[in-house]
């Protein structure tokens, strides 16, 4: 078996999710090659070569891949991937965008967001917002798979010594052009990979009050998340949303503040190791999954928590 892992990166740094995907590839077993597609992404190729268990890194460095447009990546990965038995990418917004395109171009099904590998053709994935867990078997010759990064412990990012080769395949589908992007800036850890996440919901009442959570987060090195209610109310930007339609997180500690715990929110955080809920409504569903629940007004509890830390 030969497995192709598509690296997730921002053209300068390899994202940790790639190491989680390599771990999923190792669970399948076989030779693991990594494809880095981007623009001026040589450093990412070097970083990927150090990942434990990788035998070869291919770097497709061209302006057409600079913004990870699904049309161009889809054609590149379908071309490179057709000689592999498995093609894997992280189930982030980039992977979710181009991988189904790869699958369709290869005329195979895709298995989305796997959380466990049972065998080379059988995988476990959540359905119905994580309220059911399906074991699916693929009969396709090439398995196209997106991986839930939080479900696999990352391989070591140092110590590997894969060969790095340049890949001179330029695929410009000519269907789309990058216009611009607005990226939220934050000094805090990345939400999807943070060890601790502090999240606020509608109970925060406004965006200004999220500063209280940020102060607590900074004390314990946490990322700040939000429920959809908080995003829809305009308190915080949407890239902070945790849930079925936002990011899936599984930190050591998840602190839910003023979040009721709708099915769609639980889908994004119920695999956290320890869950703390702070809510004044003792009937809130979040308490059914919380390891530690505090029934209190968050506007009293959060400043107190900040002092205690």
């Amino acid at each position: 078996m030969s497995i192709l892992v598509i690296a997730e990166h921002d053209n300068s740094e390899l994202k940790q999710a790639t190491l989680n995907v390599v771990a999923a590839a190792r669970a399948i077993g076989g030779d693991i090659d990594v494809l880095v597609a981007g623009e001026n992404c040589g450093a990412v190729g070097q970083a990927a070569a150090k990942a434990d268990g990788v035998s070869k890194v291919m770097v497709a460095d061209n302006a057409v891949y600079g913004h990870f447009l699904g049309e161009n990546l889809g054609e590149l990965v379908a071309e490179v991937g057709k000689s592999y038995s498995h093609i894997l990418a992280a189930a982030g917004t980039v992977g979710k965008d181009f991988m189904p395109r790869v699958a369709a171009l290869l005329d195979v099904a895709q298995v989305s967001d796997i959380m466990r590998v049972e065998s080379e053709d059988t995988f476990v994935r959540p359905i119905y917002a994580g309220n059911a867990i399906a074991t699916v078997k693929s009969t396709d010759s090439i398995k196209v798979i997106t991986v839930r990064p939080t479900a696999f412990d990352p391989v070591a990012g140092e110590g590997g010594s894969a060969t790095v080769e340049a890949l001179d395949v330029v695929k410009d589908a000519g269907l789309s052009q990058f216009v611009n992007e607005e990226l939220a800036k934050s000094d805090r850890p990345d939400l999807a990979s943070a060890g601790i996440v502090v999240s606020g919901g509608r109970g925060m009442q406004n965006g200004e009050n999220f500063k209280m959570l940020e102060q607590v987060a900074d004390l314990i090195g946490a990322a700040v998340g939000a429920s959809r209610a908080a995003v829809d109310a305009g308190f915080v930007p949407n890239d902070m949303q945790v849930g079925q339609t936002g990011k899936i997180v599984a930190p050591q500690l998840y602190i839910a503040v003023g979040i009721s715990g709708a099915i769609q929110h639980l889908a994004g955080m119920s695999d956290s190791k320890v869950i703390v809920a702070i809510n004044k409504d003792e009937e809130a569903p979040i308490f059914q999954v919380a390891d530690y629940g505090l029934v209190a007004d968050l506007f009293e509890a959060i400043p107190e928590l900040q002092r205690a830390l």
Binding site: V108, A109, V111, T122, P126, I127, G130, N131, A132, I133, A134, T135, V136, K137, S138, T139, D140, S270, I275, V276, E282, F287, Q288, V289, A290, D291, Y292, G293, L294, V295, A296, A301, E304, L305, A308, L309
Partner: peptide, 26 residues
């Protein structure tokens, strides 16, 4: 191309405890 071998309920989380105040939580 995909066959579903089985569908299971997710592992239930252990019921947690309620704490009285912030000091106990910390």
């Amino acid at each position: 191309r995909l066959s579903t071998l089985k569908v299971e309920a997710p592992a239930a989380r252990q019921a947690g405890v309620k704490v009285a105040d912030v000091a106990e939580l910390v």
